[in-house]
Amino acid sequence: MPALVAALINLSHPGRYVHWGFIQLSVANLVVIALMILVFVLAIALPFPHGKRARR
């Protein structure tokens, strides 16, 4: 492949998969889904900086 800039972390080697019963998931997708759930939980759990209340 011409002029391929080497990625710092090469993801192009054979994929890894996890199996639970009929579920097969690539590790990459699993990471993405886990991060989505983690970010959702953090978005709710972490305190949001206070805005100044303005009375109108």
């Binding site: 978005a43 709710i44 949001f48 805005g51 209340r53 303005a54």
Partner: peptide, 14 residues
């Protein structure tokens, strides 16, 4: 430039 006071969570930035 204001939002109701209950708009106070990171979930709103998504």
């Amino acid at each position: 430039d204001t939002q109701p006071a209950y708009v106070a969570s990171w979930i709103y930035v998504f």
